[in-house]
Structures are given as structure tokens and as C-alpha cells.
């Protein structure tokens, strides 16, 4: 129990710090958007047009990071986005030293402050990262109702299922009212990035499995897979004949 309480307290602390960083980011971002001239002077930089525009861009970035953190204070990525932002701020401040119109003492003070916040951001990001639960592959159940009795569907499954039989666990049940057989296949979902890439390349696991399941339904109900003039081609093709014979 003690160790559990300690873990909960630690989680609570890092969550509070994360929320604080989110509020700080939001506040500073709003200030940069609203009063770039005042802030530029405060950190010792000449508030010319370019500086004010840069401050406003930084402000927009800070608001986005702040909202991201406040929306999900236990997610490390929004906090890491602040660390990246801090690095950009430091580079900007270092570059400002080149100008003769810079107030050096104020600029040094600003850099020290940003460095301090950077350390806090990085420590919080690392802590949140460490506390993330291990990633478990997401599962999804795809389902179709085949207008045939359960016995017929389960007997023919192996014969007609093809790839989808290898993709996941399958269960069969009689549909309500005896209106066919419900077939459910549990598949392992790819990460969001893999899924997005799969959609572009026409090999999205979910879409392919869904298509396979429909083909199984067609094979059992109709005895063959139904083609259109476009669907016999892989990827996009105009809906016109190509002279290519079907399966």
C-alpha cells in the first residue's frame, strides 16, 4: 500500500507540474501575442517589426503547446513540444546577441530563465514518458452477417476464408431471429501512422480485412466474388472495361 500511495503521490505531483507548465505556456503565449513590444524590451531586444512578428509566432506556438498540455496533462508529447520550443527560444536569444542594440544584461537574464524552464520541461517530459503504460496492440472486431445457417458458414469458413483466416480469431453465432450467421473476426490494428500509410498505399490492414470478410460473404451466399470494372484492378482505376477477364 505504501509503495502504491507513493506512486500515486508522484503521479499527482508530475501531473500538477505538467498542468502548471501548460498554464505558463498559455499565459506567456498570450502575452507574446498581445504585447510583443513590451516583452521584447523586457528581455533586452530591440522591438522592430521583425522581432514583433517573431514574438507573435512564438506566442502562437506557446498557446498551442499550452492547450495541448492542458488537454492531456499526462501525455509526454505536448511537454516535449515545449522542450523543442525552448531550444528555438534559446537559439533566437543567442542570435540576438549579434545586434548592437541589444541590452546584454537583460538578454543574459532571459537566457538563464529559459534554460531553467527548459530543465523543468525536460525533467517533466522524461517523468511523464517513464510513467506511460506499456503499449498494448489495439484489437478491433470486424463483423459481417452471412445469410446462411451457422453450420454451413462454419463448415465452409476454412475453405473460403483465405487470408482473413490467418489474420485473427473468428467466432460464429446465429443472428437474432435465425436471420443468418454473425461472423466476427478480431484483428490486431496497426499504429495510427502505419494505418495512414496503409490507406495511401491501398494496403490498410483493417480495410483489407473488411474487404476479405465481404468476399467470404459473397463466396458463401453467391458462390463467387463480385467484380466491377474498377475493382478488378489494384488501386484506383477508371470505371471502364479494360478487356481484362475476371476470376
Amino acid at each position: 500500500m505504501d509503495s502504491l500511495r507513493t506512486r500515486e503521490e508522484s503521479d499527482g505531483q508530475v501531473g500538477t507540474i505538467s498542468k502548471g507548465l501548460g498554464l505558463f505556456s498559455l499565459g506567456l503565449g498570450l502575452a507574446e501575442m498581445a504585447a510583443p513590444r513590451v516583452l521584447a524590451k523586457a528581455i533586452g531586444i530591440e522591438p522592430d517589426v521583425r522581432t514583433r512578428l517573431t514574438m507573435r509566432l512564438f506566442g502562437a506556438r506557446g498557446i498551442a503547446s499550452g492547450l495541448g498540455i492542458l488537454a492531456k496533462p499526462r501525455r509526454p508529447i505536448p511537454v516535449w513540444s515545449r522542450v523543442v520550443g525552448d531550444a528555438i527560444d534559446l537559439a533566437f536569444l543567442a542570435w540576438a546577441f549579434k545586434s548592437k542594440r541589444t541590452h546584454t544584461e537583460r538578454l543574459v537574464g532571459a537566457m538563464v530563465a529559459v534554460l531553467g524552464v527548459t530543465v523543468l520541461d525536460a525533467v517533466t517530459g522524461a517523468k511523464l514518458q517513464k510513467d506511460q503504460p506499456p503499449k498494448v496492440p489495439q484489437k478491433k472486431v470486424l463483423a459481417v452477417t452471412i445469410n446462411r445457417p451457422l453450420q454451413e458458414v462454419s463448415q465452409r469458413w476454412r475453405e473460403v476464408a483465405g487470408d482473413i483466416a490467418e489474420k485473427g480469431n473468428v467466432t460464429f453465432s446465429t443472428a437474432p431471429g435465425g436471420r443468418g450467421t454473425e461472423v466476427r473476426v478480431e484483428i490486431t490494428m496497426p499504429s495510427r501512422i502505419k494505418k495512414a500509410v496503409g490507406r495511401v498505399l491501398h494496403n490498410d490492414v483493417e480495410q483489407l480485412a473488411d474487404g476479405d470478410l465481404r468476399k467470404v460473404k459473397q463466396l458463401i451466399e453467391l458462390g463467387e466474388i463480385i467484380h466491377s470494372d474498377a475493382s478488378i484492378h489494384r488501386g484506383l482505376h477508371a470505371a471502364q472495361p479494360s478487356g481484362k477477364k475476371g476470376a
Binding site: L222, D229, Q240, P241, G243, K244
Partner: peptide
């Protein structure tokens, strides 16, 4: 001008 259609399914 496009190719003539062909039988793709038995129906």
C-alpha cells in the same frame, strides 16, 4: 474510345 466489356462474373 474504350475497350469493349467482357464477362467478369458468371451472372
Amino acid at each position: 474510345r474504350v475497350p469493349d466489356p467482357v464477362i467478369l462474373n458468371s451472372g
